[in-house]
Structure formats: structure tokens, C-alpha cells
Design a protein around this nucleic acid. Structure first.
Lengths: 321, 321
DNA sequence: TTGAAAGCGTTACCAC
DNA sequence: GTGGTAACGCTTTCAA
């Protein structure tokens, strides 16, 4: 778009950006708008941000494993809230690119802010991003990273909640399912650690139970259940709980009589099981709050990095424990 | 980055891009590389694509409703395959922006290709994208759009498969669950239509059953089940099937004796229900094939738009039907 | 009120 | 072999 309406490029820019500093005559405005519509003109984001020296793009790495409804809703809310603040959310999809290499790839897009779920970002990566112009880097993980704002997802508290509940219900030999699927370690490890902490100094014992999300794996685990001598199991989340519970029931193991089973995430499916599944309800951070944190950080990049602990965990006791 | 290593910007460009047309002395190369590393230099994608006149960005709108494991896996595979072809996949997150307005927002990023799941793109939108430089526009929906390549997701075939199966099992009064959640119409409507087609000209009847994904809604539907007089129900997908099946069982309705229940998508949870859930297995398009389609279209934008019907549907008969 | 021109970071092209 | 220069599309400053 340029001399299409018989005016200068500057005039076009003024009209389309509603620049209030200069006054353009109504007829000219109309001519520009009509020409723009007719030509199907769309501004060039790259040129704009190149000239401006910054963009309004908030970048997140696209998750590379199936995400549940919890995260979907969180993401939706976040996108909505950031959209209201005039940011554009972009999920960068690159599989197999990790750590600092990923940070460099993100930095090429010169996002104004970067949101990183998971612990795949080091101090080095934060430096690269900041030097490339990112005014805010926020991590969502169990541990904070130097130089970045942190939303500490306290998965450890989820495990603690589960462990304390099972202990209070009189269980003493407690299994903890740890998914074998990759990409889940950063969630499962702290959940296991939380159970351990809840039971430290008591007479209860904790047994780690690696489990792949397959019927056959669950059946194998259930087959040796009696010899394991467990009276309770915290199954990482509701889906693994459903998988294991079914396998245990197929082995005629009474739930919760012989073994208590609890999950986490409070998904719909837990309410549909029989016995109804006890679960740890997890409260993800509010998308609106996170959007405001990002906006604050962008407006004031010099401020100290904030660290918030989120992910409220509360027990939902139903019938399986 | 510019005169940091005491060389010209052009030389920097040559070194970092390994341009073979010109020969740069080894010492110079080293100096440039060192300076780049020291400064944490990262190339500016916007400047690059501005200069080049095109990018390697493939844009997809981020889904604004919870997606299942099927779609997650498809997306993962697609990102991997496009990554191998040196494209960068970006999911554009904007909630509440629809149709041509969304197309214009996407066009601002000047992606080389746009992949649109769902039927939210009109001929107008395709024109805007193409005029802005997109060399390939591919839709994944039930209907094709003029000017765009189309992967026809044949949800109608899913419904047909379900209807034919239930008829063959002797069922004649067939309910079809239609989710009330928004965003799912483009999947649920063709699935319902497929059931209708399968039973057209037979003595079977089809009853549409709107259902929200909530226990209470399912309970209300189950409470009036006997008066509905249905002997089978196709529940949109496995999750709705689980919801409804549980409600029916709570009403002491025998499955499959009194009512056959089938789902779709062949999720793990169907195998864990008792009775085991019959389901329509759905084959999403191969991410690799789609990546190749995109690449072909990008290399040869003039070629006629391709239309492929994907989404193979096949019945998985278990115990609930 | 409008237009001309500079400059953002890159890279292709041409002189040196 | 190397380095200057122009141009990509846009915004902004300054001059007309």
C-alpha cells in the first residue's frame, strides 16, 4: 500500500493508526480507508515492529504433550485477558528443540514477553531473551529462574495433600504412581516428593510405582498388587487413577476396602467412576492475574522479578478413599 | 549487531548464514562468531522476512476449546514434520475474533502458509490471506472453501458408521447426543447427519438429544429415558458416552440389554468402562502428509487446490452395543 | 493539513 | 576476499 489513494505513505499510516497528534481531513481519511479496503490492505507486522523496535507479541512454547482441560481453560483465559490488554499471544511450535537453543529460536521473533511453562529455561536462556528485547520473562514451573518472574506451580503441595489425606484415613503403605510418559517428570516428581514429605517422620512408607498409560501395564501392576502389600495409592492424576482402579477391580481388589485410590486434577471422569474417585482439586493460576503480571512487567521492566506460589491444592473426598 | 567485530554488516550476514557464494577468511569468520556469541546476538526474524519478502512461518489459529489427545498428537506430528521441512509453526491465540477479522489479524504476520481447522474461514478470508502473501491456505473442515486447499474431515462418515452399526445390531429407536457446548457444532452436526443418512429409508428413527457436559444434565436426560423409548444412543464421543452411560446405569438401565451406547474417538477411557464401550475409531490425517501438502503448495502456489477426504471411520465393537 | 525523508536489521548486488 | 549501498514496509520527525 502506498500511493494508491493519491496520498503519501505517512498519511496512510496516520489514518489507519488513528494518530491523534495530527489532523487529517475527513475526505482524505475516507479516501484512504476506501483504498485500503479495496486493495485488501493489511499492515505488515514485521515492518511495524522493526521500525517501532518492539512488538506486542507474547510468546509461549506450544506444549508437546497432550494437555488436559485444566490447562486448556487456563490458556484460553490467559489469551483472552492478554488480548484485552492488546497483546497477541503466539504459541511457538517446535518439537525437539530444548533449552537455550529454544530460547534463541524464540528470541528471533523479538516477543515483548515470554511465558514458559515447565522447567526448560535456564539463566542463560533468560539472558538471551532479555538481551533480545523481551521485557518480561515469566516461568511457570516448580522452581524459579534467575532474572525471570516466576509462578511457582506447587505440585509438591498436591502430593502433600494426597499423602496427608491417605495418612489421616489410616493408610500406612502408600504407592505413588509415576507416569513413564516423557514430558511429565516435572509434574510427577514434585507430586511424589510431596507425598514423601507428608509422611516423613511417620510410620507410613512410600513406594514409587512407574506406570505407562496402557491397559497392559496397569494389568501387570495390578497382578502383583497383593504381594506389594499396599493399602493406598496416589495415582498422579485422575486419568492414571482410572486406569489403575479398573485394573485393580479386575483383580477383585476392593476399593477402598483393601486399597484406597486417589487421583488429582478433579476431572469430570472421577465423578463418573464407581466408587467415585477421591481427588486433589488443583487451582491453576488465574489467567487474568497472569496477564496483569505480564503487563506490569512490560511497563516496568526494571522492577524486581516477582515470585508467586500458585496452584492451590485441596482434597475432594469421595468414595474411593 | 553491526560493527562489533570491526567488520561490515554484510560480512556478518555472510558468516552467520554460511553463504557459499563469497569466501570469507577464517580469522574474520572466527572474529564474527566470537563477537556474536559474546553479544548474545540473535538474528531478527522480522527484519529477515521483511528483506526476503517471505517467511517460513506456518500459522494456525489456536483452538479455543479443550482438545483431546487425538488432536494433540496430530498437532505434535504436524509440527514435527513441518519442522523437518524447515517451517516454523505458530499458533495464533485470539479469542473472540472470528472470520474475516481473524484472517486479517493472521495476515499481519505474513505467514507463508495458513492452516485453519474448523469452518471459520470464508472465501473473503482466503483472498485476504493470499493477497498478503500466503502461498498456501489449507482448511480442515467438513466443507471446502474456494481458493483454499481442503482436508475434508468427514465427520459425517463417523455418524454413518455409528448408525449403520446400531441398525445392524437390531436397534431401531436411536438417540444421538449433540453437545450443547459451543465450538463443537461443526463436529456434532455432521455426525448427526451421518446417522440420519445411515438410517434413511429404513424403519429406524433418529432422535436428537442435546446434552451439556455436566452430571446433572445427564441425570435429567436419564430420568426421562424410559419414556423416550430409545434402544440405542450414539453419544457424540467417548466422553459424552461415559457421562451418559453412567447416568443410565444409575437409573438401572441395562447396557446393552435395554439400550446400546456407543461413543467415538476410541479413547482409552472407553476401554476402561464396564461394559466396555463400543466406539467409532477415527483416523485423523497424518501430520506428515499434511506437512507435505503444505510444502507442495508453498513451492507451487499456482497449482490447483487439492481436496482430500480424510478421517477414516471404523467401528470398534466392544460390549456396550 | 500534507509530504519528504530517515531509519529499524537483513541480505543481494557491486564496487573496491 | 571485503565492504558499502540499496531496498523490504512501516512510523515518526520535520519541513512545506
Amino acid at each position: 500500500m502506498a500511493r494508491l489513494a493519491g496520498v503519501s505513505r505517512a498519511t496512510v499510516s496516520y489514518v489507519l493508526n488513528n494518530t491523534s497528534a495530527v489532523r487529517i481531513s475527513e475526505p482524505t481519511r475516507r479516501r484512504v480507508r476506501e483504498a485500503a479496503k479495496e486493495l485488501g490492505y493489511v499492515p505488515h507486522a514485521a515492518a511495524r515492529s522493526l521500525r517501532a523496535g518492539h512488538s506486542r507479541m507474547v510468546l509461549m512454547p506450544a506444549p508437546d504433550f497432550p494437555v488436559g482441560p485444566l490447562y486448556s481453560r487456563f490458556l484460553d483465559e490467559l489469551q483472552w485477558a492478554l488480548g484485552r490488554l492488546d497483546y497477541t499471544v503466539v504459541q511457538y511450535g517446535a518439537v525437539g528443540v530444548r533449552g537455550d537453543e529454544a530460547a534463541r529460536a524464540w528470541a528471533e521473533l523479538r516477543p515483548v514477553a515470554v511465558l514458559v511453562p515447565g522447567s526448560d529455561l535456564g539463566t542463560k536462556g533468560v539472558t538471551v531473551l532479555k538481551r533480545s528485547g523481551a521485557r518480561a520473562v515469566v516461568t511457570l514451573a516448580s522452581e524459579s529462574v534467575e532474572g525471570a518472574h516466576a509462578l511457582l506451580l506447587d505440585h509438591e503441595a498436591v502430593g502433600h495433600c494426597a499423602g496427608a489425606h491417605l495418612y489421616a484415613r489410616g493408610r500406612r503403605r502408600i504407592g505413588v504412581v509415576v507416569p513413564e510418559e516423557s514430558g511429565l517428570e516435572s509434574f510427577s516428581a514434585p507430586r511424589l516428593a510431596g507425598v514423601r514429605r507428608a509422611l516423613r517422620g511417620t510410620d507410613a512408607t512410600v513406594v514409587e510405582l512407574p506406570l505407562a498409560y496402557e491397559e497392559s501395564a496397569a494389568a501387570r501392576l495390578a497382578a502383583r498388587w497383593r504381594e506389594l502389600g499396599l493399602d493406598a495409592v496416589f495415582a498422579y492424576n485422575d486419568e492414571y487413577a482410572m486406569l489403575l482402579m479398573r485394573a485393580l477391580q479386575d483383580e477383585d481388589i476392593d476399593i477402598p476396602g483393601h486399597t484406597a485410590v486417589i487421583g488429582a486434577d478433579d476431572l469430570m471422569l472421577g465423578r463418573l467412576l464407581r466408587p467415585r474417585l477421591s481427588t486433589v482439586h488443583v487451582e491453576l493460576p488465574s489467567g487474568r492475574d497472569l496477564a496483569e503480571l505480564v503487563d506490569r512487567a512490560v511497563r516496568n521492566p526494571g522492577a524486581a522479578t516477582e515470585t508467586h506460589t500458585v496452584l492451590g491444592a485441596s482434597m475432594v473426598h469421595r468414595e474411593s478413599s
